[in-house]
Structures are given as C-alpha cells and as structure tokens.
C-alpha cells in the first residue's frame, strides 16, 4: 500500500482497544503513584528512598511497564487527535516518524533511569 494512505490504513479498532486497555491499567498504577509520591513528600523526593524501592526487581518491572504504557497511551492519543484532521501525506509520515522517535527515545531514557539502580 502506498505511503499516501498512511494514517488511514486499517480501521483503527486495535489502537482503540489498546488505548482502552492501557488506560485501565494506568488508572490503577497512577493511583498508587500519586499516593506513594505525595502522601509523604519524603517518599517521592529523596534519592535514598527511590534507591531502596529500586532494589526490588518487581518494582523495577512495574516502573518499566508504567513508562512504556504511559508513553504508548500518550503518543497514541496524540496520533488519534492528529488523525481527526486532514493533512498532506508527507506531513502524516513526518508526524508519525516524530512520534515513534520520541516514544522510543524517551522510553529508552525512562528505562535507563530505572535500570541504573
């Protein structure tokens, strides 16, 4: 299929579904995140506390899943909004490429932050 149809390829039902699933998971992780970070400011804003938590590999796995899901959900959402407008196909290509590069780049940075411990 020609690159001209990028962005209108497929029905979008899978991205709709994954947006709902990632959103539901994020609700639960986000509630925990806010309680942990703001119920006691020391918990979220002290290097030693972060270091202690990061010693648990399951906590690290949860954080990596959090970063990946949140970035996916956010950037997929931006692409959803973009797709509601009609733009020239070269711009579609450029925007999609930027979103993918941003997602991979910041995902790698976020995972590096977690695996640093």
């Amino acid at each position: 299929m020609s690159y001209k149809y990028i962005g209108s390829r497929g029905s979008g039902s899978m991205s709709w579904f994954l947006q709902r699933i990632s959103g539901i998971v994020l609700v639960f992780v986000m509630v925990g995140h806010f309680i942990l970070m703001h119920y006691n400011p020391e918990m979220g804003h002290s290097f030693n506390r972060v270091f202690e938590r990061m010693q648990n590999p399951y906590y690290q796995m949860l954080q990596i899943a959090f970063v990946v899901l949140a970035l996916y959900h956010g950037l997929q959402g931006v692409w959803n909004i973009y797709r509601d407008f009609k733009f020239p196909s070269w711009l579609n290509m450029a925007v999609l490429a930027i979103l993918i590069v941003v997602g991979v780049g910041f995902g790698a940075l976020g995972i590096a932050n977690i695996l640093h411990f």
Binding site: H45, S46, F47, N48, V50, F51, V67, A70, L71, G74, L75, G77, V78, I81, V102, F106, L109, G110, A112, N113, H116, F117
Partner: peptide
C-alpha cells in the same frame, strides 16, 4: 488534558534522568 499530560511525561522522564547523576544532583 491528554495533550498536556503527554507533554508533561516527556519533561518528567527528562527530569528524573538526574537519578543517574547521583544523590546530590537528584536531591
């Protein structure tokens, strides 16, 4: 709000990169 939060998470990840520079930089 979705656009705002997507912009924020990029800043958030970038800020937390100071975790890699050690306790003094992060604190």
């Amino acid at each position: 709000t979705g656009l705002g939060l997507t912009a924020y998470i990029l800043v958030h990840i970038n800020t937390l990169a100071s975790l890699q520079e050690g306790p003094e930089a992060f604190n």
